[in-house]
Amino acid sequence: MDKYLNNKEELLFDLIEQKQFDQLSSDEKQLVLSLITEEEFNLRKMLISTAPSTFEDEVAIPAPLVIPQSSTTPFWKKPIPLYQVFMAAAIVAFLWLVIPLNQSGADTHTEYIVQTDTVEVEKWQIDTVFQTTEKPIYLEREVVVDNTIQPTQKEEPRLLLPGPSSPIYLNENDISNNGSSLSGENSSALLPAFESENIGFRNL
C-alpha cells in the first residue's frame, strides 16, 4: 500500500510530468534537488516520455467479434423503463372501467352467456318444486265448531182425541147445541192433535 504523497512529492510528480529540468525555476530546482538528483529527474522524465512508444512493436489484429446467441437478451428479459410500466397499468385500468360500459348494448356473446345462466336457474327451480311437494306441511288454524245440540227425535204430531164416550150434557135450556165444530175452522190445522184420552176431558 503506497502512502499518500506529501506536498513536496506531489509537486515533484507534477514537475516531472510537465517540465524538463532545464525549464525549472530556481525554486523548483531547489525543491527537486532536495528530494532527488538531477540525473534521477532526467531518468524519470525519460521513462515517461519513452513509455508511449514502448509497445509499438506489439501490433496485433483483433479477431472478429462473435456475440453468442445466449448473450442476446430475449424480449421478456429486457428491462422496461418505469414510465412504460405506469403507462401500461393506466391503460389496463382505463380499459377495465370503460369496456363493460361499452358492451351494455346488443352484444350476441353477452346475451348467450345470460341465457345459459337462466337455464341453470330454471333447473334449480324444478328441483325446488319437487322437494316442496314431498314434504308434509303442518298448518295450524283455528276451527270454530258449532256445538249447538239439534234435536234428533221428531215430536209426534199432537192430535185431538175423540171426545168422551159419555157426552156431557149440558143444560139443554141454556146451551144451544147449534154451534159449529172447531174442526171446521181453517186454523184448526195449527192446533196439535190431541188424543181423546189425554184431554182433560178424559175420565180421571
Binding site: Y4, E10, F13, I16, E40, R44, M46
Partner: peptide
C-alpha cells in the same frame, strides 16, 4: 493515482538506473 504513479516511476527509475540518458 498520483501516489501509485510516483512510486511506479520511482521503481522503474531505480531498475533502469544504468539507462541514464
Amino acid at each position: 493515482i498520483k501516489s501509485r504513479l510516483f512510486y511506479a516511476t520511482k521503481k522503474l527509475a531505480h531498475q533502469l538506473k544504468d539507462c541514464q540518458p
